[in-house]
Structures are given as structure tokens and as C-alpha cells.
Amino acid sequence: MKFSLTPIQFFLIIFLLQTGSVFITFQTRLLEGAGRNAWVVFIMTGILHYLLLLFYERQHSRFLPGPFVLLLYKMYWIYINVLSLSNILYSLAIWLYPNTPSIVLLLFIVFVSFYANCCKPDTIINLPVIIIPAILIFFFSLVFVFPDLEWTWLFPLDLKDVELVLNGFLISQVTVVGAASFLFLRKRVVSDVKMIGWPIAIYASFWFLFFFMSLIVVQLFFPLETIAIVPQALLYLLKSQKVNFVERLDLFFLFIWMMWSMITVILFAFLIRLVHAETNSGKQYKFNLLIHMVFLLVPPFFATRDRLEMLREPLVYLHLTIVVVLPIFVFIKNRRKTI
């Protein structure tokens, strides 16, 4: 596949890959795990994320994974896609479509992804643009909530409880989920762009602002005692807003989020195809069809409460291996070779 990315396209894609699957659920989980420390814990994650990106940028030219490692990445992305599709299905079933068979909803979602993946790479890399207005709407509707926030809920902190902090830190790692794509897409960015310095710093801070703001808003809107009963806190938060022209902002937001997640699914499928095309030639169409069959058939099985939990449990650990450990391993291996 031939295409090249401008830095803006590149960062927009990475941003979507990192946010699409998790940004609606992670606040609740983090607050459950880390209590009022959540925001401090997340600042730590933010710094770490920045360092990780810097590290990736310095080392990316050494990132030459073998076929086995590539297979691991492909499996990992398929897993993430299955997870976020199950998540979409589960949320849709809870909020609006309890009676519709999930396979029917999924059929449409997967069809969109399949259609997009049949198009030229140019189309897919430009797809995230549709989300830009959504990001703005998202921020704007969060600003609505500001008068209702209770700022004393930032405290008291309990940083001495190391277990709580570590637990929270681990949970907050899900926000870094798509970061590995940096390594794969970096070489597609038009050369002679300097990433170290402002570009990465701006991106990392935007990423941080996005997640941090959504976290803070949730933390300051719901008392910690009720966090457990509002699994999709952001949606509840918008539901409680009164606007004149329409009730239930949350429904609109649910669909914005769904669109967001669907584009993420498309992008992950694209990444899988991209990585696949690097090692295998020919039969791209069949491979595309194959992965989309997987996306169609597997998620309905997981779209129940228990199974979704089961699917989500290993995410953090998988993510740490794939995003942090595996690249380091590959870098070291390649360094040995070059020396």
C-alpha cells in the first residue's frame, strides 16, 4: 500500500486509535480503582505517555520486527477491535436497542468498516477528519457541566496507599492502548519532519488534556460513592444537563461516540491490513474479508456483561507487553544485529 501522511494526519490517526475504544469507560474504572487519587495518577500516566512517545520517536528506525512479532501485533489489534466492537454492542443494547439482535447491528458496523477498507488508503487516512467537529462538540458539552462541579472532591488525596496508586496507574494505562501504531505509521510520515520537540509535545499535551478533562469532570460531578452505579459516567453526566431545544444530550453523544469508535475500528483494521501487506503479497481482498468476518462473528459472543469483563480483564497486561515490552525487545534485538 502506497501512501504518505502529513504530521497532522499522523497525529490525528494516533489520537483516534488511542481514544476510540476507551474514552467513555475508563474514567469510571480509574475512579473505582484509584479513588480520589485518580487525577494525580493520571498526571503520572500523562508524563509517562510523553516519555514513551519520545522513546518511540528516537528508536523508531530500529523497529524492524520479524514475522512472529508482526503476528503478535496483528492478533493484539484484532483483540482490541473485538473488544471495542463488543463494547459498542453492549452499550447500544443497554441504552437503546435491547431487543435488536446484536449481530444485525454489528453487520452494519462491520459493513461500513469493510467498505472503508476496500477503498484507497487515501480515503482511510482522511477519515478521522469527520471526528474533528465531534471533538469540539465533546469539549463544548463538557464546559456546560462546569457550574455543577464540586471542586472539593479533588481532595483528600491518599497517596500513601501505594497499592491504590499502583492499581490506578495500571488501570490508566488503557488510555495508551493504541500507541504502538506510532511505530508502524511513523515511517509513512513525509520525511524531513522533525517530530522531537514541539510536535510530540503538543500532541502529548492535547492527548493529556482530552483524557484529563473528561476524568476531572466525572470525578467532580459524581460523588465517589455513586461512581460504581454509573458505568458510563460521561453519558450520565450529559443526561443530567438541561438544554432548551432538546432533551437527552447523552443520546447524541452516544452516537458521536459510536461513530468515533467505528472509525477507530476502521483504522485498526487498516493497520492490520497494512502490517499484513508488508509481509504477504497478493490476496489483500480476501484477507480484508477474513478479518471482517472475524469482527462480525466474534463480538456478539462477548457482548454480555460477564464475557465483556472477561475480555477486558487482560487488556492492561496485554497492552503493557505489546506497547512497552515488545518494542524494547525488538529495539534491543536490532541493536545487537547492527553492532
Binding site: E150, T152, W153, L154, F155, P156
Partner: peptide, 9 residues
């Protein structure tokens, strides 16, 4: 109580 909890444990 909210202020007490936050700053006066």
C-alpha cells in the same frame, strides 16, 4: 462536610 472532608481530615 464536603469542605471538612477535603481539607480537615
Amino acid at each position: 462536610g464536603r469542605k471538612v472532608r477535603a481539607f480537615h481530615s
